[in-house]
């Protein structure tokens, strides 16, 4: 265990957020069980009130999740000098077997919480709580993921022992090594880049079609949901060497450092925002036929699609700019 202020902040806030989640899930289960809008019973009134609390809580969980996602990478980065051979977050995440699983769960949990909030917003558009059961079933599925992330995060920091020999990002994300990181780095860059650009263009196209005609929401949802993992893989195998101007350097974390003009922040923000709003459109597709939502929901989906198109276009321009201005030439 490393007694670092950021470690304390991450573990402490994870425990608090975990407590909020357990509380929400408890009431979520009761709502799934005994929700009956036609009843005027005491219990139903109490449950209706709880829904307000739970959506507020989940909103905070999302904001704190985003803050701790960044802080987690920062902390891993600043712990790097404590491990022989680790030069950035890539090395200190590798110092414990819980490191990368924690990061992946954190990204997954963040994505699920964001989709939950989109569903929640859609639910509030209708007067009769049309999505309430779906929403709370979803919450019951989301809670274990986020709790597992909390547990893994604590386990990671407890497991860290300074002076463990780990790999620096050069060897971890270099194509000669073994493990998940180098599997990603070893993807043929042109393949990863090509698939990513194709997905991006497809999602932008589908988004525009959806925005204009209201058709193709499923396609938009699927393409943009796929563009998140593919995008992250493409950053590792294809895009990052352009940023570092080194064909062998594949680290996805050094992008967040000042030496590279903090380019990682707009990059990851646009990728997360664009793909999640697009995926939200797809998740909402089955509910278009609900009577109380038939006007409001398509309009809301169009707004989401607009955000998705805007963010993914921004991402595409940023990626294009990185590749065009880089001194790295692949052929």
């Amino acid at each position: 265990m490393i007694l670092h202020p950021s470690v304390l902040a991450l573990v402490g806030s994870a425990l608090l957020v975990g407590a909020l989640l357990v509380y929400s899930a408890f009431w979520g289960a009761r709502i799934v069980q005994s929700w009956d809008l036609s009843s005027g019973s005491e219990l139903q009134l109490a449950l209706e009130r709880r829904t307000h609390l739970i959506s507020t809580l989940l909103g905070y969980v999302l904001v704190f999740g985003l803050a701790s996602l960044f802080l987690f990478v920062f902390t891993a980065d600043s712990l790097a000098p404590l491990f022989t051979g680790a030069m950035c977050a890539a090395g200190s995440l590798h110092a414990s077997r819980y490191g990368y699983p924690t990061l992946l769960l954190q990204i997954g949990g963040f994505a699920l919480a964001a989709i939950w909030l989109i569903v929640n917003r859609a639910d509030s558009l209708g007067y009769d709580y049309p999505l309430v059961r779906f929403k709370y079933r979803f919450l019951l599925a989301l809670t274990p993921v986020l709790l597992a992330e909390t547990a893994l995060r604590a386990a990671y920091f407890l497991d860290l022992k300074p002076e463990v020999i780990t790999s620096c990002c050069g060897s971890l994300f270099g194509s000669g090594g073994r493990g998940f990181g180098s599997d990603l780095a070893g993807l043929p860059p042109s393949l990863a880049g090509g698939v990513f650009v194709a997905l991006l263009l497809g999602a932008i196209g589908a988004g525009m079609v959806f925005r204009i005609s209201g058709r193709g929401g499923w396609l938009l949802g699927a393409l943009s949901a796929l563009s998140l993992p593919v995008g992250l893989a493409a950053v590792v195998s294809w895009l990052s060497p352009y940023v570092y101007e080194l064909p062998t350097h594949h680290c996805p974390f050094c992008l967040l450092q000042g030496e590279y003009h903090w380019i990682g922040y707009p990059l990851y923000a646009a990728l997360l925002g664009g793909s999640l709003t697009g995926a939200g459109v797809g998740v909402l597709m089955p509910f278009r036929s609900i009577p109380s939502l038939d006007v409001e929901l398509p309009a809301y989906q169009r707004r989401l699609a607009g955000w998705s198109v805007a963010l993914l276009t921004g991402l595409g321009l940023l990626v294009g700019w990185i590749v065009a201005t880089s001194h790295l030439r692949t052929s």
Partner: peptide
């Protein structure tokens, strides 16, 4: 880094 640590330590 500092601001987000502080945020998690106090605002949460």
């Amino acid at each position: 880094f500092l601001v987000s640590t502080l945020f998690l330590l106090t605002v949460v």
